[in-house]
Structure formats: C-alpha cells, structure tokens
Design a protein around this nucleic acid. Structure first.
Length: 347
RNA sequence: GGCGGCGUAGCCAAGAGGUAAGGCAACGGUCUGCAAAACCGUCAUACCCCGGUUCGAAUCCGGGCGCCGCCUCCA
C-alpha cells in the first residue's frame, strides 16, 4: 500500500493490477484482452474487476487474524509469496507448479512479490502438464480419480517415478495399466543389468568401449537436462548405456568399467530420484512383494529342485511340466550357468 | 465466447526450411534340450486436415479440426 500498488476498500486490501506494468507477463495475457472474456460479477469493492485480494475481511464464523484493516485473513496468493521469500529470499531460481496455476495464481504471486520487493521473483517457472488416465483427463466427476498413495499401492513408487521421467514434464502424462506395466518392466530390465554388473567382485581389466559409452551417457545427461529438463531423453540414453553394459558383460566379461558404469548410473539417476536400490535388494523385494497366488516361495524352490533333477536325467517332459505349472502361477524361471532363479510376473 | 498451450509410428520423444534422432513395445534371428534373460536385425514416402509460399515444408503463411489448461469461490 505504501508503494501505491494496493488500496484499501472496506476492510479488504486489493492489489491494483493496472499499477503493475508487467502484469500478465507469465501467462502471456494483456489486461485488455482479459477484460473481454471476463464473466465474473464485478465486485463492487474492487476498483478494477481484475484486481485481486491481498487481505480479506473474514465473514462471520470464519477463522481470522487481527490486522490494521480489521479481522480477516490473507488473500490466497499471499502464502506462497511469504513462504518462498522467507526460505528462499526475494528472488530465487525455480518455481514449480501445475499448468492450471499459471493464471491467476502464479501471475498474482509475481505481481504482489515484485511490487513489494522491487526485485525479480523466480528466475524460472516450471509448469507441468496434468495427469490423464487412459487418455481422459483425471477428474472426480469422471470417477477416474485416485491419489498418489493409492497409486503406490498398485504400482511400485520407483516405477511411477520412472513413468513420469520418461515424459516431458510440460506434457500431459497418460496413466494407464499398459503404460505402468511397461514402466515396471523397464525398471526390471534396468535392475537386471545392474545386478549383472554388480557381481564384479572379481572384476578384471577395463573395457574402453564401455567407458566411452559411460562418458557419452554423462555428457548427454547434462545436455538433455540443460534442454528444458528433457528427462525423457535421459531415460532413452540410460537404456543405451544399459545395452552397452550388457554387451560388454557378454563379450568382455566382468570389468572394472562395469563397476564404473554402475557408479555413474547411481550418481546420475540419484539426481532424478530413481535407481537408488541395490540391485540384489530390488530383486529380493520383487519376490517378496509379488502377488503369489496359491503358491509360496518355499514350494517354488522345491519345484525348481525337482525340475533340475529331471533336467539332469534329460526328462524334458517333466521339466517342462513343472515350468509350465509355475508359469501358470505367474512365476518365470531363468536357467543360468550358476543355477536357476525365478521371478514373479509383473501384474 | 475470450486467453494460453499442444497435435511426429502402438507408447515416450528429437527435429524449427534441405529431404523423419533415440528409447520402449512389436516382429524376425543368435544363444538355449525348450524357454527366460541377453545380444543382433527389422520397424513412419511420412509428421491432425485443406490450401498457399518455395527448387525444396513436419518445420514458414492462411483456414479448419481435435485435445488440454485458465477465465466465480477455495487452495
């Protein structure tokens, strides 16, 4: 109010958008354009219909705080300006939020903050696209609404993160059973490779090809992230590196380069908040959280032993019967040189 | 109705006037007793549609269509 950006009207305080020349700079709107489409009932107390409240008088029965303008509460954009200035200062690097908040919330936040401080508010604004479910928007009225905690019961939290990372944050992200299945499968493929690479106690020598792939991954990470946080690109590059690791493991064997790859992936993907688990831990967890209907791990191990005996006798019929049976229970077997392992199907 | 944004293969996604990156999936092959995993290979005469500019357009211009967000209060 002292600077003339705001005025008192009754027991309210409003921000005068006309006094702030940059108003509309974030959402790309001009005041005159906005007025054309305005269909709000003009609030008698406002000097201009586009002005917004900084302080509102409380209605009877509402919570309130005491103020020079009477009992009331802060306008609805105030809390964000106050919190960010308290903890980040009058100007800071990045402000995020959903696309739905661009106007008016963020626009008003900028106006009131910059008017008060005289400094630029946030340097960058990241507005994420909204979530869709099976190509429909997620909304309560459509009944396809669910919370994050419900989602984490259905899918692994890490797969959900990977799902979002494989999209550009600005675009809508389309949740679906198929897409989440793919995400879970991708995660497993990655961890399977990391597991191979982590079994490098006796790692010997190095693989120049793999090391150049590692360097490329790291360089690409920086350029992708510098390009408006293109995490989808990073995920693609990660799969390239995963292939390189497998190729190296297949042809050269266990090297210190594989150990290095593991370290780099952990470091870089740690920035993105994924792949923080030990590969062996991940596999163990997949088994323990798998939805094993009508079968327990003990029985699985028993059947695997039985099948391996049959295989030794070249009793392929019996061996295949056991495998088919386990398959019907959602168990997939993997025969390796050092024995047979199992994993649960992704459901 | 107004304003802002988006539309590239089943999915994610690069490209921003010079003849469609990459990843996932799918399919074929190698390996395997057979599988699984892994590896190798294939996979858009085509970029929502219709016009126009240009030697040349996914990229520029005009007009449509579709989708998303916001435009009352609350956060």
């Amino acid at each position: 109010m002292e600077k003339g950006f705001a005025y008192r009207s009754g027991n309210n305080v409003f921000f005068s958008v006309r006094k702030f020349p940059d108003y509309g700079k974030l959402s790309g709107r001009s005041l005159d354009h906005m007025l054309e489409g305005v269909r709000i009932d003009v609030n008698e107390e406002k000097e201009d219909p586009l002005d917004f409240a900084l302080w509102k008088e409380s209605k009877p029965g509402e919570p309130f705080w005491k103020s020079p303008w009477g009992n009331g509460r802060p306008g609805w954009h105030i809390e964000c300006s106050v919190m960010s200035m308290e903890y980040l200062g009058t100007n800071f690097e990045i402000h995020g939020g959903g696309k739905d908040l661009v106007f008016p919330h963020h626009e008003n936040e900028i106006a009131q903050s910059e008017a008060a401080s005289g400094e630029p508010f946030a340097k960058y604004w990241l507005h994420n696209g909204l979530i869709r479910i099976n190509r429909e928007k997620m909304s309560k009225s459509l009944g396809n609404f669910f919370t994050l905690s419900e989602a984490t019961k259905r899918w692994s939290p890490e797969a959900i993160r990977l799902f979002f990372l494989s999209h550009h944050y600005q675009n809508p992200a389309d949740f679906s059973e198929k897409n989440m299945y793919d995400s879970e499968a991708s995660l497993e493929r990655i961890y399977l490779t990391l597991l191979r690479a982590s079994e490098t106690q006796k790692a010997k020598g190095r693989d120049a090809k793999l090391e150049s792939s590692i360097r490329k991954f790291e360089e690409d990470f920086h350029s992708s992230m510098s390009d408006n946080f293109n995490t989808a690109d990073v995920v693609g590059n990660l799969f390239d590196l995963i292939r390189s690791i497998n190729r190296s493991l297949d042809s050269v064997g266990r090297t210190q380069s594989a150990t290095l790859a593991l370290k780099k992936i952990k470091e870089i993907c740690g920035v993105l908040g994924v792949l923080h688990q030990e590969p062996a831990e991940y596999m163990k967890q997949r088994k323990s959280t798998a939805n094993l209907s009508n079968i327990d791990p003990f029985e699985i191990e028993k059947l695997i032993d039985e099948r391996n005996s049959a295989r030794k006798e070249k009793n392929w019929k019996k061996a295949d019967e056991i495998r088919d049976y386990l398959n019907s229970k959602g168990i997939v077997l993997e025969d390796r040189q050092d024995g047979t392992d199992w994993k649960a199907n992704i459901t």
